[in-house]
Amino acid sequence: MYEFKFHRPTTVRQAAGLLARQEEAKLLAGGHTLIPTMKLRLAGPKHIVDLSQIEGISGIEMKGRSLVIGALTRHFEVATSPTVKENIPALAELAGLIGDPAVRHRGTIGGSVANNDPNADYPAACLGLGATIITNKRRIAADDFFKGLFDTALEPDEIIVRVQFPKPNKAAYVKFPNPASRFALVGVFVSKRGSEIRVAVTGAGASGVFRVTSFEDALKKRFGVKSLEGMTVPADGMSGDIHGSAEYRAHLIGVLARRAVAAATA
């Protein structure tokens, strides 16, 4: 690991100031991506800005028809929160599928969303529920937020403070985990909110999380498994590696989408 200096600001404004002033500064939330990456020397930030001392960016509440989750909220808290379970049970289930219990005690929603790992679960939930990412500067629709592999719309001194999820009528997430890493080999999040249908896929896209509009159109006619019968996604644009070819991943999208719709309508 390369040497670094660390900072523990107590406000988001201080943290943003540090990001703007210090060259090669990185935010630290749960640290379960950043620290392993630093060990491998794939990241070598000169400054680490630890968010753990900032009050008011953790916690879960319903605001009107939306579930609002603070950026520093741990996966364990989302997975076990009665508020999440009551309003968007699919989101609680998704959080409970991330990593393992010890990882869920540290990892945060803000960290996962900001990192935008192409195999992470939360980006699928954000896109699949039409979430809004709230930063220290603005509100960004999930549709505009995820830009590609590990790339987001965040500016260098921009910090996620909350994620807002509109409450769906129906939703489900089905994940085919890589048995070693428990990251999603493919994961599909489906939701229905009024006439808005979303099908979001993580793990498969060569450019990260994406929506399957052909599936969404089919589900608009009728939100049921039958609407997706025989439907496929082309392998073009899918990622392939030792864990699964592009064709295999494309196939899984159809299978998991049908399972997700079945779960959402059960």
Binding site: G31, H32, R106
Partner: peptide, 24 residues
């Protein structure tokens, strides 16, 4: 952070101590 040989409890919760800085 895969194998769990380093699990300790931090404020009562299991955490992988190989993926946590001491100052955290």
């Amino acid at each position: 952070s895969q194998c769990g040989a380093c699990v300790v409890h931090i404020d009562g919760k299991a955490v992988k101590s190989c993926t946590t800085f001491a100052w955290q």
